[in-house]
Design a protein around this nucleic acid. Sequence first.
RNA 1: GCCCGCUUGGCUCAGUGGUAGAGCACUCGCUUCACACGCGAGGGGUCAAUGGUUCGAAUCCAUUAGCGGGCACCA
Length: 896
Amino acid sequence: MTEIPKTYDPKEAEQSHYARWESEGYFAPEINKDPDAPVFSIVIPPPNVTGSLHMGHALQHTMMDVMTRHKRMCGYRTLWLPGMDHAGISTQLVVSRELKKEKLTRHDLGREKFVERVWQWKAESGGQITKQIRREGASVDWSRERFTMDEGLSRAVREVFVRLYEEGHLYRGARIVNWCPTDQTVLSDLEVEKTPQSGQLYYLQYPLKDNSHHLTVATTRPETMLGDTAVAVHPNDERFQSLVGQTVLLPLTGREIPVIADEYVDPEFGTGAVKITPAHDANDWEMGVRHGLPQVFVIDQNARMTTDAGPEFEGLDRYKAREKVIEKFQELGLLEKVDEYEFSISKCERCKTVVEPLISTQWFVRMDEMRDLALDLKREEGKPRFVPESYEKVYTNWLENLRDWTISRQLWWGHQIPAWYDEEGNVYVARDEAEACAKAGTDKLTQDQDVLDTWFSSALWPFSTLGWPELTEDLRTFYPTTVLVTARDIIFLWVSRMVMEGLKFTGKEPFQDVFVTGTVLDKHGQRMSKTKNNGIDPLEVFDKYGVDATRLALASIGSTDTRWNDKQVESYRNFANKIWNAARFCMMNAESAESSVNAFDGDRANLPLHDRWILSRLNKTARDVNAALEKYDFHEAVQTLYHFFWDDFCDWYIELTKANVTAEEPSAERTIARARLIWVLEQSLRLLHPFMPYLTEELWQRLPVKHGELLHAAYTRAAPTIMLAGYPQPDAELIDERAESEMRAVIDLVSRVRNIRSEMNIKPGDRVPVLIGAADDRLRTAFTENTDQIARLARASAVSIGAQLEAPRASARAALAGGAELAVPLEGLIDFEQERARLQKDIDKLQAEATKLTAQLANPQFVDRAPAEKVAEARERIADITARISVLTETIEAFK
RNA sequence: GCCCGCUUGGCUCAGUGGUAGAGCACUCGCUUCACACGCGAGGGGUCAAUGGUUCGAAUCCAUUAGCGGGCACCA
């Protein structure tokens, strides 16, 4: 056993175990043979097939894996379904960029060849992602891996489209939309990002037709004036009362346009008069509809001016046109002024091009019915439940203001819209071309060239991946899923849409809970992003500190934003090493300890204190960790495990049993001590496993235990793995407050002696006598029964215990809780001055607390109104503190 | 403009009504036969500010300030 290295090398464990877990089928729900097993299911938020995984993915995957492994060990039939998203725009952009290197455009290839090329690219990039997910240790069921463009999922997409159409929720029409001139496609409102921008506000004068007056309008986009079809003022604005209904002669075009009144106009802003360009501004478009204004298209899909913009402008880029319009106004003396102005501008989320609002024929979904389904579910049943709760408001507020969803995209990569047109332009929406032909009564049909928004298919993910629209066994078993884990930035884009579509098409919510993770920020508190190039690659962190350590660091982040800190991971790397070495110690001393299943069986009341204590601590840990995981409190779970293992198990339990465990001669005592040590270690490894899968499996496999007997009942026929061992559940009978309090006294005693040794500069190797006085029988018994351990841990030459402390004057002393006293005789070594100072420090600390407590108890309000239990507690504490103060004071007096 | 979150030791963060916590960093001492990625002992915080509720507030409420995020508007 001595061949176990002193330092844990994560690489080795990370290489071997995953492949075995996967090939043994441990990740698949079928491994669970209990027909009555409860079900836990979760679908992965499908990463974009374009990207590589970033820290945010690693964070989410850690949370999901912890939950899945935990539930699996608890005997649940678990499914964590993996997959990827085809990510329409991003992917098309990436592949187009590749083509550009070959001096080709997608148009050179043509649609079919281009899409083929994307599939090739997907195979490569997707392979990278699945590799990364495996590296994370994610216990996903690869046999159920899905891709949003799989045949099955595509079928679900068409089915949903057809049903929405047939029920009248879909329409195709010309509306004002967000157009990206670079990507040449429409974007939904959610795919547009607003960025602040400093620019100019131009004040343009429009003369009235009769030339009696002029109106001044303010605009940030002068070039759109070429498409103006009205000037609007507020109906109650007295300045313009007389002008409403008059006609303005639009400069540069000579067109006559009316002055109209509309409530939308803010009289306070600009001049109070607004130019209206229905074809190139969303608000103006709406106003145009209200007032029946004509639409004059002056900017085309390439963001260049059209013929209708006039011969001087035709063909100009929108920004060039802006300059020219300003120039002309200046020449005509119609440019009143130009102000510097801060405003925000809409950009394409993907390529950052400034979006051009255009009128275009697109497919839209009316969201009212689905929105109401989601809102009702929230109102009536509180589903889904958000953790943290604060996101519920964000979710419902957004739903309440939901507008129609633009779902067509002018791309090639995606689900082609299942709509066909005949030669007259009539539309036939169908599940496939044959059905469309049947409906049309002709086979001379052309399919709509557009594809659907990526999020259209993502919205179906929780059920399309399980076989919908077929009522498959998987769908029946795993839907609704248990919980969705996600980052907050896709609550609208994705979460809300899944709820709406899920309710609409399956009649059930797609998940019961939504757990929203925090965000990993860089060390300056900035979001990690590709453009800022401040991201940290999880793979590099894995290489440096190990996957398990990284997972612990990520799990502790929970749902608050946290600045990334290597030091944190390093400390968990150290923790992993600590576990490794604790196990190493146990195994180095395991001979003859091939343990029975429970080394603590038998008369538990007669176990030694440290055994009763560790059982109590272990069961409390199991209780707290299970409870923390139930409420998605990963931070709490990690802290509980960390401190149990390091503080309780390593610092105290191992040290307390060390004498027995390492005894030279074999004995029944030695055997049982060894078996118990291994038993506690084994339980600890199970508790840690969901967080640290590799290390725990590596060690567990090496333990001298009967592995097969440790599996959860649901997995009895599986080849042994800690993955399928039962997750420790608390046994209330083993939680022993008396043992814990007695052990605390022992620990306190040892710590006080060590403190004296350290403060008095006693050499680590020197042994000193320790004298203890404890009037309390129970305490005295506890000390007496643990004399050997106390001597060992305090490095005492002898420990003598009596009801009264009898110690020479030249001793260092301490007063313990419970009225116990302690002295370390230091004849010839003691510096009375120093000892007085040390004691005075103790007294001061106690005195400060006593003062507070005395004041509290002197307050009749406290005694009357505070719970009796709190008052009693305060009384006990003050009594104890007073006793200790008087002991210490007497000691100091004696030194004088 | 509206909404949400954060502000706790040098740093990163827990704690959410009853004695201020952890890890890292810092100081001192240790090759104590699992571990120096370690062991032992320490120092360090008026819990952003003000006001209120309460016997009692880091914790609940209000206001303010700073930081971060979201939504809307932006002629």
